[in-house]
Every structure is written in C-alpha cells, then in structure tokens.
C-alpha cells in the first residue's frame, strides 16, 4: 500500500463521513442526488462480489463492507427516513440514470476484463463508477446555492479518484509494470468529469464566496 492509495481511500471514506454527517445532523439531504447514491450502491455490490471468493487483507474486507454498508445507509435515509426524505430535491434530480446503467452494462459486455459473470460485473462497476457522479453534478448545477457539506462531499469524492491516478502511476513503475486499460481509462474519465467542479470549488474557496456552478 502506497501513500497515494491510502490517501485516496481515506478521502473516499471521508467523503462518505461528510455526507452521512450532513444527513444525520441537519436531517436534510437537500442538494444530494439519490440517483447518484443508487448508482454507488450498485457499483459496490457488483464490484465486491469477490468478498466471497478472494481474500486480500483485513483492511480490504473491512473497507469493502464499510463502502457497501454506508452506501446502503445513505440510500435508505434518502428514500425511507421520515424526515430526511422530505428534503430530497426530487424535481432537480432529473438525470436518467437508467441510461447510464444500461450503457455501462453493454460496454462491460463488449469490453470486459474477462468473460465470466463476476469479471463482467466487475468491469461494469468500474465503468459505472466513472459516470455515477453525473446526476449529482447536474443537480448541483440546477441548485441555487450549494451548502458547504455538499460542496465538500463532491470535492472529496473527486479528489479520491485523482489520488488513485497517482497511485496507478506509482504502482506501474514500482510494482505491476503492466498497462491496466479498463481502470486507467475509466479513472481518467471519472476524474475529468470533476474538472469543472474543481475549478469553481477552488475559486469559491479562494474568494471566500459561496459555491455556485454556472448553468
């Protein structure tokens, strides 16, 4: 485990903590896309099927269980919690995420890492994660004001994949020495989707202004 990978995982974990903190303390999920959260549940469930077949480390098992558990918890809060669900910005969350699921699944069938059920699902989860943030970004663009916790949540989520890119570069030279097309290209796409958001996030931070994305 190198420092970029660990920093990436911790950033990912922190983004989830920030989101859960927002939901639990403010009892509000305003500005959060339920569609993106649904996609993450699907991403984790399809990627971590190897929990049953392969053991890497205690850290690995623990993190996988945390990601599955927290993503289901967030989904549950937004969908079923008596108070929280009333704050869901349903009308703004209009992205057709089923198209993403279908598109990624077809892509995974065409270009899987390997032709087996678990490997196709693993590839699907990589493709889907790359675009899962889209409904959230669209929702932010439609929101009048973006609260700090929501802004920080999305920033940390983007930073996580950017750190993974550094981790892959590091691992390529020190360890693996092989090109990993599927995660690399997907990871690049995933990070690139945040470019616009990063720009406005850093600007608002430097100017001490409220974060706002131009429509």
């Amino acid at each position: 485990m190198n420092v970029f990978r660990l920093a990436g995982d911790m950033t990912h974990l922190l983004s989830i903590v920030v989101l859960l903190l927002k939901i639990r303390t403010t009892k509000s999920c305003a500005g959060i896309s339920l569609k993106t959260q649904e996609l993450y549940v699907l991403v984790f469930l399809t990627r971590y099927l190897d929990l049953f077949t392969r053991y890497f480390s205690v850290y690995n098992v623990l993190m996988k269980l945390i990601f599955i558990g927290t993503s289901v918890a967030i989904f549950w809060y937004m969908r079923y919690h008596k108070v929280v669900k009333q704050t869901y910005s349903k009308d703004l969350d209009s992205f057709r995420h089923y198209h993403l699921i279908l598109g990624c699944f077809l892509m995974a069938l065409l270009i899987p890492f390997d032709f087996s059920v678990t490997e196709v699902l693993w590839t699907f989860s990589i493709y889907l994660e790359a675009v899962a943030i889209l409904p959230q970004l669209v929702l932010l663009q439609k929101s009048r004001n973006i609260d700090n916790l929501t802004g920080n949540y999305v920033f940390l989520l983007g930073a996580y994949r950017a750190l993974y890119l550094l981790n892959w570069i590091y691992r390529f030279f020190t360890e693996i020495h092989k090109i990993r097309w599927i995660p690399w290209i997907s990871g690049l796409v995933q990070t690139a989707l945040y470019a616009d958001f990063f720009y406005y996030y850093i600007q608002s931070w430097r100017k001490h202004e409220e974060l706002k994305l131009p429509a």
Binding site: H12, F56, F67, F113, Y164, I176, I179, R180
Partner: peptide
C-alpha cells in the same frame, strides 16, 4: 490475466 494482481484496490 494482466489485472488480477491489482484487484486488491477498492
């Protein structure tokens, strides 16, 4: 498999 050894990632 080119990718098997790095499936330890999350």
């Amino acid at each position: 498999k080119s990718d098997g050894i790095s499936k330890d990632e999350l």
